[in-house]
Design a protein around this nucleic acid. Structure first.
Lengths: 142, 142
DNA sequence: TTTAGTATTAATAATCGTTCTCAATTGTAT
DNA sequence: ATACAATTGAGAACGATTATTAATACTAAA
């Protein structure tokens, strides 16, 4: 319930950029940290009964802010942008089930090595990457 | 200029599905095949002076049709959907330059092997995948 | 080749996710 | 406490894509 470390990180970022600590930002951070990844709509629904009401635009603004702090990371799985919780996690990629939509996280250093090799061969320098495997999860295969 | 093979493939698909061969579909296919990957807008601009005028909705419909035939494949690089020419190509992935937007294709079997391994470890069966490397191309690095 | 029937088209309205605008409000440094 | 700048909520605006619809163009059968 108390994500003091992430809260500190957010405050530090805000201070460094002359931005303000607001109730909305704290509330949205708290909601965000309760999941592995969420869409703006999902956060909006989570905070539906919150008083005072928090607008959808603020959700978007704050989720993008969390990306700036490095707490979140954008992913484009389908139509909607997913905001991925990456605190306390190393880089990871995703498997997405085409039937039930569940998302499984995984990490694999060997793949990342090979990516670096390929990039080097083309004189390309990687800043980020995206790897998604689509198919059927173990449950939906049966 | 004459992509008879792809045209045949399209006609076959249409016949099999009780759909019709139209001028628009042939013209759009021809335009599509002149690039490695295009957006609907790009095709629309390519055919800007074509008579009779071809509407944007028809471009979208036809590009999606080409995906059904297996001639094209959708990619979601940024805001717009890219339609990737995959005839006569094996599976490949992409490097996208963040500065100039150029897209470099590459293929790497070792990576695909590792993907299969990871998936197997999770009881997941892959139908498709997407791998994109973002960064700076050799030109923009200088 | 004419006909009848269905698929397709162009134009544009509609939709969806997201960002922008702006007046009102709230942090923050003094 | 004051003043200034950043933030907010509401809804308008936006860009990409899809749906609607009346008119048109294939296609297969006669």
């Amino acid at each position: 319930m108390k994500h003091t470390k992430e809260l500190a990180r957010l405050r530090e970022h805000l201070a460094k950029h002359g931005q303000k600590v607001t109730k909305q930002r704290e509330v949205i951070l708290e909601a965000f940290l309760q999941n592995d990844h969420v869409t703006a709509e999902q956060v909006y629904r989570m905070l539906g009964r919150h008083k005072p009401h928090i607008g959808l635009a603020t959700i978007y603004r704050t989720l993008n802010l969390l990306c700036d702090t490095g707490i979140a990371q954008e992913r484009h799985f389908g139509a909607q942008t997913h905001y991925d919780n990456v605190v306390n996690k190393r880089h990871h990629d995703h498997m997405i089930c085409n039937r039930c939509g569940s998302i499984i996280e995984f990490e694999n250093c060997d793949i990342e090595h090979l990516q670096d090799e390929v990039a080097a061969r083309h004189g390309f320098s990687i800043t980020t990457h995206k790897l998604e495997l689509y198919g059927l999860c173990s449950k939906c295969k049966g």
